[in-house]
Design a protein around this nucleic acid. Structure first.
Lengths: 203, 203
DNA sequence: CTCCAAGGTTGACACTGTCTACTAAGGAAG
DNA sequence: CTTCCTTAGTAGACAGTGTCAACCTTGGAG
């Protein structure tokens, strides 16, 4: 036993994968390093040679989720029309949340390991937010950086909020029709366009 | 020891309070029933006479947070102008998240006990959402229930997303100016008004 | 050849949730 | 008054956890 790992020498990698699998099955709370070790046919202390604590392996898993997320946003279809591009970005965001609920929940639906203590975890999150700001900056009518930041925050709030809500089982409990839920994405993106859109802006 | 509780006979109540205090200090993960018992000067098994499991005491705490939250929304200043009323509701929502971050995190920033298994926990959440739908229904231009639901979902997404984002330490890590953050609430509520507002609606 | 660090093992400790069995108090039924 | 059952509490045990410390093994640098 422990053959696979000793040979390849990537016990660290195997730990991360196994951890993700465990989280996928039973949620973040069900993750235990001893379980990881057991499944890999390795002593219960072995993972600690690669991760100083349980928090650190969680941070690693979450960090990878952020990386995968940012990459997904980068791969979205591009458009020269900034409004269409913004729509693509939003769709891409919600797409990811729908297709990878596990990752999404890890990033946003779970108490994170203290970001100050795991800064490498946040790098990719910055990346994703920067992408959003670039796109917003391409829209007409926003001169100052402050304007861009505010609307980026607004836009992020909307998609993040929607994604979170759609992931909880709460929606079914709130008496919403299925049709409503399936239309929600398109409707919400439309509303963002309404809010930021070419339509008259006062103030 | 155990005097206070035996006398008053409200050990259950004391447990809930103590649990909340523990969560406030160290987060939800740091809550242990044994610790609760210890602080109340009572045997480690005593709390189990009032809560079948750890999940149940969490559900109770979260349920109370929802109740307090719904009550706070009900106490908002009312207005006959439906747009102002909507603004008040949004402000009230964000107010609560800012003033009671602990409660807010419990309701929305933490993996909840399975709602299906703790239905009483969700009752007040329904209440809060119903309040929002009423307010939206008061706006002109939305005929069908489906329209109302969609815009309610949109509005909820925005404020929920913003509240979540403002609560994480992430904002500081993303290079946002403090001024931006303090303006975010007003700006976001303005954008909601833009999106739902008297300005032209197509479709 | 020696030595040493990296990666892995074993054993221990304190802590957790939860099961089971026991006890004290108090009220209802006879 | 006695009996009995429910309620609220205690005590002890068990498996499982994160983590500390000490011990092996092995392969390469000096």
């Amino acid at each position: 036993m422990a053959v696979r790992n000793s040979k390849t020498g990537d016990l660290r990698e195997a730990c991360v994968k196994e951890a993700l699998a465990i989280i996928a099955r039973g949620g973040i709370d069900s993750l235990s390093l001893r379980d990881v070790a057991r499944r890999l046919g390795v002593s219960h202390q072995a993972p600690y040679k690669h991760f100083p604590s349980r928090e650190h392996i969680v941070a690693e898993v979450v960090g990878r989720a952020f990386a995968s997320f940012a990459a997904h946003l980068e791969k979205r279809p591009r458009s020269d029309d900034p409004y269409i591009d913004l729509g693509n970005l939003g769709r891409s965001y919600l797409d990811y949340a729908r297709k990878h609920p596990l990752h999404y929940q890890l990033m946003f639906g779970t108490p994170l390991p203290d970001p100050a203590q795991h800064p490498e975890m946040m790098v990719k999150a910055e990346h994703a937010f920067a992408t959003l700001k670039e796109t917003i900056a391409g829209l007409p009518g926003r001169q100052s950086n402050a304007d861009v930041d505010l609307d980026a925050l607004f836009t992020w709030s909307v998609v993040h909020g929607l994604a979170s809500i759609l992931q909880t089982p709460a929606t079914e409990q709130l008496g919403l029709r299925k049709a409503t839920i399936s239309e929600a994405t398109a409707h919400t993106l439309g509303r963002i366009a309404d809010a930021l859109g070419g339509t008259n802006r006062k103030r």
